[in-house]
């Protein structure tokens, strides 16, 4: 890694560092913030640099802590709540969905609850069903709650900054399987509004469109390399913000390629992959479709522990490439 590159985990850490150095309203609260093994290298030494009054390690109380952060956000602060595993975040979901997401609407904009919740996807390694989940689709169902899924190192930093500075409540979901990804360091532009943060093309190609968010963008990129070796050029759309969702870029791509594979690191039923397909079907003229769209998702089961089962449970780049071949070759 060269000097002008950073890892995804370092991107997250720099996002925190920028926010806490530049905005006195920002504090962060959650379990494990004074211990490196909860959040990997993504928050290293923040407590030493900014103090334990602004980097608050808490009792084992997801619900109380998340809701207290909502209360502080209503009072004008910009708290970032850390849930080191999304599975445990389920315990703190009531204030996210019932309070923060609705606060602006309930009071017709007279008050807002601009909390940022950071939910970390931490799976694999035989951790089993309650240490593995990626529940982004649940949360993306809720009007008023912005849901961000960074796929690259600079987005890991920038989406955290933009999300925290946004006047809307934000769920920022990062993925431990991306922490070692590297990317080129750009300048921080703090003035970007989330209403302007739409999907990005991560690769251009005319044969097939692959759409994902977070970790599945990495899978798509790896699959595209495999396919390129076979003369198939895939176009890759990184959604970045899945609620509210902008289908425009994916639909434009599919209108050109005529083929779509949606990739999601969670289950299929009523999930993000279904939303991707629906968004394209509603926008792409029937005549432009060359094949029925496909979904690559987890198997419809809780995550298993044994490595032999994990190997078939999680999608991989070979599986994405195989689905693409089937769409192209019939």
């Amino acid at each position: 890694m060269s000097a002008d590159e950073m890892t995804y985990a370092e991107g997250i850490r720099r996002g925190f560092e920028w926010l806490m150095a530049n905005d006195p309203r920002v504090f962060t609260i959650g379990q494990g913030l004074w211990s490196p093994w909860y959040v990997g290298a993504s928050m290293t030494d923040l407590d030493k640099k900014f103090g334990k009054e602004r980097v608050i390690d808490t009792p084992v109380s997801e619900l109380g802590t998340t809701a207290a952060a909502v209360g502080a956000a209503i009072m004008g602060y910009r708290p970032i709540v850390i849930h080191p595993r999304m599975d445990f975040m389920v315990l703190g979901t009531d204030p996210i969905i019932n309070q923060a997401a609705k606060w602006s609407y309930l009071f017709a904009g007279r008050s807002t609850a601009p909390i940022t919740v950071r939910g970390i996807i931490n799976r694999g390694g035989e951790q089993g069903a309650q240490h593995s989940q990626s529940l982004h689709s649940w949360y993306a169902h809720i009007p008023g709650l912005r849901v961000l899924m960074p796929a690259t190192a600079d987005d890991a930093r920038d989406l955290l900054i933009w999300g925290t500075l946004s006047d809307d409540p934000v769920l920022y979901i990062d993925d431990r399987w991306l922490y070692e990804q590297t990317g080129v360091v750009s300048e921080v532009d703090p003035d970007v509004k989330l209403s302007d943060v739409g999907p990005k093309l991560r690769r251009e190609g005319g044969d097939i469109t692959l759409v994902g968010a977070g970790w599945t963008v990495k899978l798509a990129l790896e699959a595209a390399e495999i396919l390129a070796g076979e003369g198939i050029e895939a176009e890759i759309v990184d959604l970045r913000q899945i609620n509210p969702i902008d289908h425009t870029l994916a639909a434009q791509s599919v209108s050109r390629t005529g083929r779509l594979v949606a990739i999601d690191g969670s289950w299929s039923n009523c999930g993000l992959s279904a939303e991707i397909l629906a968004g394209a079907v509603e926008r792409v003229a029937p005549a432009n479709w060359k094949a029925a769209p496909r979904r690559i998702t987890l198997a419809e089961a809780p995550a298993p522990a044994a490595r032999s089962l994990e190997a078939v449970y999680y999608p991989d780049a070979d599986g994405v490439a195989e689905a693409a071949r089937e769409l192209i070759h019939g």
Partner: peptide
């Protein structure tokens, strides 16, 4: 629901 909101406001 009001209980932890009050705590968070108090913290602020």
């Amino acid at each position: 629901a009001t209980i932890p909101l009050g705590v968070g406001a108090a913290l602020a």
